[in-house]
Design a protein around this nucleic acid. Structure first.
Lengths: 247, 247
DNA sequence: CGTTAATTTGAGACCATTCAATTTCGGTGG
DNA sequence: CCACCGAAATTGAATGGTCTCAAATTAACG
């Protein structure tokens, strides 16, 4: 059945961004790809690399990061199954950051040429692809705000809200319980904090009964108060109304 | 002559992202638009608004910002003439942030429908448009790094490097002297610092002979040391090799 | 020139960092 | 199954970069 096709989650995701005809869906499912496995901490893309494939996350979690000359690291996004980790590399010549696995991952590497061909073959498909990269960008903007203007508690709360909501949208987890295998050090590098302060801030959120966070999973105990603590407004995820009326 | 057409800078910019045929160039120049003027501090786009035009900056400077519930502000990008300030609104239904003018601006408001039509009419045009939004996103990623992991001196130096280089690329200014009408408060909101600390950091950069910054212009006195101070690597701007070889 | 915005200066407080040490946890081999 | 190991999480105390609050000075503009 079609649902068991490795790329069918991609069809489902893109359908939310543009109305895909059966033949569009078929074209997507017919994309060539090579299946690869990647170990925890393994690299999917390296900064500065010429890239000829885009990587779709089938199972597992990944993150993108940039290293500074002084050795510091900033994580610029986390990725969950069914997401591309580097769709921008379909057009940009050189990777401007690295992508690494948070957990063991299964991925589909799709040749950029094939992606561009399928984009050129259907207006709706390319609108969906473009929309995906635009939502990516919107999330980056919100991250600028997060690390730029929120204090440690709000920063971490906001990040957890985002991940919980994105995981919810793909139907991973229930009752506020989600698999999210992240270390406190990675959380620190995503929020621009130190691991020590991240630890103290997490204890604070736990003490207040907002969350429960282990090395493997995140449980949201009180969504409303976590959302308030994180100054969270989901508009930037553009999930309710991805593409607006075109007049 | 063609060069005097208001949209010709757009053709020049997009030519760097994809090879535009004469008919492509013509299609772009034939885009419908309404010319508008905007005063300093005036809004071009408001957060939460439904948008039906994309705004191209003909003259003047603008910035994008997000406001937090507590009243704090984060500026997420600055824009210079020939750039779109909101090309993503061609596809996203609702503006997730505001755009405001740094100086009096002349803009061309182009209907999203017309932009999408011209994109659909030519593979090269749509690749150029998509590339522009992807470079936008790359800059946002670098800003996450900037506010997340650099200290105040490096943050400001990095931002000034970026603006100087982008202004240089469009041929604005010479000898390291560029028009850039920004206040220290805006610089502070762009770097996630307070105005007071921004002021002290600027004095520090001036004292070391790296820059000269007035309310109207930026002069880079020592590019190499400013670049080092800002931990700046221009790769993320994707100007040398925007679109790579497509195999 | 007067008036307001923007920049500059000073001093004290605080949030987050640094540096180290300790404890807990997850996985592995005996 | 348990002892062991390294990684991750936790704790403590001191330092420091940045913030806050105010006031003074300078620049911009009509």
């Amino acid at each position: 059945m079609i649902e068991s096709h490795p790329l069918s989650p991609l069809v489902r995701r893109w359908s939310k961004y543009a109305p895909l005809s059966p033949s569009d869906a078929n074209a997507i499912l017919s994309l060539p790809y090579s299946r690869k496995n990647c170990t925890k901490d393994g690299y999917l893309v390296r900064d500065g690399q010429q890239v000829s494939d885009c990587t779709l996350l089938l199972t597992g979690f990944a993150f993108r990061q940039k290293l500074l000359r002084n050795g510091a690291r900033q994580i610029i996004s986390f990725h969950i199954p069914t997401e591309f980790v580097d769709l921008q590399n379909g057009l940009l010549a050189v990777a401007d950051h690295s992508v690494q696995c948070l957990s063991p991952c299964e991925v589909a590497a799709i040749p950029r040429r094939a992606l561009l061909d399928v984009a050129n073959s259907s207006p709706d498909i390319r609108m969906a692809m473009w929309t995906e990269t635009l939502i990516d960008a919107s999330i980056f903007r919100e991250w600028v705000v997060n690390v730029g203007r929120r204090d440690s508690r709000a920063r971490i709360a906001h990040l957890l809200c985002e991940m919980a909501l994105r995981l919810e949208k793909i139907g991973a987890g229930s009752d506020g319980l989600f698999e999210f295998p992240v270390t406190q050090e990675q959380l620190a590098d995503a929020t621009g904090l130190t691991p020590v302060h991240t630890n103290r801030t997490l204890q604070n959120l736990r003490k207040d009964g907002l969350i429960q966070l282990t090395a493997k999973s995140l449980k949201v105990l009180d969504w409303d108060r976590l959302r308030d603590a994180g100054d969270f407004d989901e508009l930037y995820l553009h999930q309710s109304v991805a593409t607006g009326p075109v007049n």
